[in-house]
Design a protein around this nucleic acid. Structure first.
Lengths: 218, 218
DNA sequence: ATTCTTTTGAACTCATTGGTTCAACATAGT
DNA sequence: ACTATGTTGAACCAATGAGTTCAAAAGAAT
C-alpha cells in the first residue's frame, strides 16, 4: 500500500543485496552500483526506495539483525519443554546456538556492527533492540522456570544466562580466529559439552553428584 | 641505523597517529593526510616510511596488538605467585584483564581487526601471533601449575583457561553494548566475582565446600 | 486505450583521496 | 663549510564513487 503496490517487493531485494555486498566489502568499500547489480535493479531505483547510502546500510543491518535474533529465540525453545535428560536438552540448544553463531550471515553481521558502530550511532538502536541482550533475557526466563521447577539452581537467572552464553560463544571467538577459520561439527560439540559441563557444575540441581563425575569428599 | 638516525623516530609517531586515526575513522574512511596531521608530519614522509596505506595499516595494527598482548600477559603474573587466598588472586587478575579489555585502545583494536580481517588476509598473522589464543595459552600454563600444586583441579588446563576468559569477557560484550557504553568499576567487579565464582565451582580444589556456600548433600 | 507510477540505463557533476613530483629546507656527521 | 640524507609544503594526476538528471520504457489500474 504505502510502498510499491502489487509488484514483487524490490525493496526487499535491495535490502538483501545491500547486506550481501556490505557484508563482503564493508560499508565504505561497498559501492551502490554493485548493490544495485546484486539486487538485480538499477541504481536510481535504490535511491528511490532508500534515500541514502547510510540509511540503506542502517535498514539492511536492522533486518539482518532481526532475523538473526529470531533464529536464536526459536533455537531456545526446547528449554521450555525439556525431556527427562536436562543436560542433553541444554546441550542441544547450546549446539544449535553455536551453529547459528558460526553462520556466515551471523559472522558478517557481527563484523559490520563492530566496524561501524562508532560512525553510525543510529545502529545502536539495532544492537539494543535485536542484540545479545535480548537473547540473554529470553534465556534467563527459561532458566528461571527451570529453577522454579527444581531442575536447576540458578538463583540469579540473568547471571546464569549470560554466563552460559559466554561459556558457549567465548571459546569460539578465539578458536575460529575471529571468524576466518570455520569449525567442524565435532569441535562444536566439544565446546558445547565443555560449556554445559561447567554450567551444570555451577548451576545444576542437587543431583550434581550423579550428573558430573566429580563427587564431593567421599 | 637502518631507519632514520639520531632524529626522534618519526616512524613511531606515524604508526601511533595511524592507529589513532584508523581507530576512529575505520580503514577506508581514514585519509593519509589526516594521519600525517595526527602524527605531526608531512604526507610524503608517511610514504617515505611506509610504502602503502595498506602496509601502514598492517604495521599500525600489528604494533597495537603487540602492546595489548603484552599488557595482558603482565596482568597474568600474580597467578605465578598466588597468596594464600587463591580466589582473591584470581579475582584480581580477572579484574585487571577486564579493565584492559574495556580500554579504549583495546576496543578500537578489536573493532579494526573485526572489520578488516576479511579484506586483509595479512593481518591474520597478527591475530594468531598476538591474538587471544596466546593469552589463553599463557593462562593455561598458570592454571596447570596451580593444578600440579593441588590448589586447583583443572584436568584440562587449556579448557579451563578459555572458559575462565570466556566467563570474564563474555558478559561484558553484551553489557557494554558492543563497546559503546563504558562500564564503571563496580559493575566490573561484579562481573569478575561472578566469573571467578562459577570458575571455582567447576575447577576449584577440594575445598569447594568451604569456598562456595553451596555444600553437597549433608 | 490511456493514464499514472515505477523502473531503467546512461550520462553527468562534484567531491574525495591515494599516490607522486619537485624544489626549498633542515639536520647530522665529517 | 660541505655533503648526504631526510623532511616539508604545495601542487598535481588519476581513479573512484555518491548522488542526480532525464528521456524512454514497462506495468498496473481504471
Amino acid at each position: 500500500m504505502t510502498t510499491s503496490h502489487g509488484r514483487i517487493d524490490k525493496r526487499q531485494a535491495i535490502l538483501r543485496g545491500a547486506f550481501a555486498v556490505f557484508a563482503r566489502q564493508g560499508y565504505a568499500q561497498a559501492c551502490v552500483q554493485e548493490i544495485a547489480n546484486e539486487a538485480g535493479v538499477a541504481k536510481p531505483t535504490v535511491y528511490n526506495h532508500l534515500t541514502d547510502k547510510a540509511t540503506l546500510f542502517k535498514h539492511a543491518v536492522q533486518e539482518a539483525a532481526q532475523v538473526a535474533l529470531q533464529q536464536r529465540l526459536t533455537a531456545l525453545e526446547p528449554l521450555a519443554v525439556p525431556g527427562d535428560d536436562l543436560r542433553a536438552t541444554i546441550e542441544g540448544v547450546g549446539h544449535e546456538l553455536l551453529r547459528l553463531h558460526c553462520d556466515e550471515h551471523s559472522c558478517a553481521l557481527r563484523r559490520l556492527l563492530y566496524s561501524e558502530i562508532t560512525r553510525f550511532p543510529d545502529i545502536l538502536d539495532v544492537v539494543i533492540e535485536s542484540g545479545p541482550h535480548r537473547l540473554t533475557q529470553a534465556l534467563a526466563d527459561r532458566l528461571a522456570r527451570l529453577t522454579l521447577s527444581g531442575r536447576l539452581r540458578a538463583t540469579d537467572p540473568e547471571r546464569a544466562a549470560e554466563q552460559l552464553l559466554a561459556l558457549l560463544v567465548g571459546p569460539l571467538e578465539a578458536r575460529s580466529r575471529m571468524g576466518t577459520r570455520l569449525i567442524d561439527d565435532d569441535e562444536l560439540w566439544e565446546v558445547t559439552r565443555a560449556a554445559v559441563d561447567t554450567f551444570l557444575q555451577a548451576y545444576g540441581a542437587a543431583d550434581r553428584i550423579t550428573a558430573a563425575g566429580t563427587a564431593s569428599t567421599p
